[in-house]
């Protein structure tokens, strides 16, 4: 069973671009879009009770509440369903990539701009591929 997908990015154009690629790559037909991390977390909590997983595409550099803070808070949640995070960032700093690996929920790291091929690759990621078989 394919996971549901949410996309969190403060830029509307980026949300639109990523959504388009998600659909095009056949990952999901209607991913949920959030322009900040708090809205994303609220949505996840509202989904408690379900069993199927949710895949999160997460931007790091966002004003106010950034991607790192999102990951910290997510760790403290006890949700009934599995969550997997793929980071999509415009940063090219190695330090950000290294830091992302310290979070258990993070299974992928993509540097913008995202292409269709990259998006297709997400379905092959460890810990995710089983859902897309």
């Amino acid at each position: 069973m394919k996971p549901d997908i949410i996309i969190i990015d403060d830029e509307e154009i980026v949300l639109m671009l990523i959504k388009r690629l998600v659909v095009k790559a056949g990952l999901h037909n209607s991913p949920q879009l959030f322009s900040n991390g708090m809205d994303g977390l609220n949505y996840l909590q509202s989904q408690n009770g379900r069993k199927s997983p949710i895949l999160i595409f997460l931007d790091i550099n966002m004003p106010g509440f950034d991607g790192w803070e999102f990951l910290e808070l997510l760790q403290t949640f006890s949700l009934d369903f599995p969550t997997k995070v793929v980071i999509i960032t415009s940063s090219v700093n190695q330090s950000d990539k290294v830091k992302s690996k310290t979070y258990e929920s993070v299974i992928g790291y993509i540097e913008k701009p995202v292409t269709e091929d990259m998006m297709k690759g997400v379905a092959q990621l460890d810990g995710l591929s089983k859902y897309f078989e």
């Binding site: 830029e11 154009i13 980026v14 671009l17 550099n61 415009s90 940063s91 090219v92 701009p113």
Partner: peptide, 18 residues
């Protein structure tokens, strides 16, 4: 350079792809 400049640049590249 890494975080602020790259954001609109990456967006540009995404749009051009589109």
């Amino acid at each position: 350079q890494s975080h602020v400049v790259r954001a609109p640049l990456a967006r540009l590249m995404g749009l051009v792809n589109l």
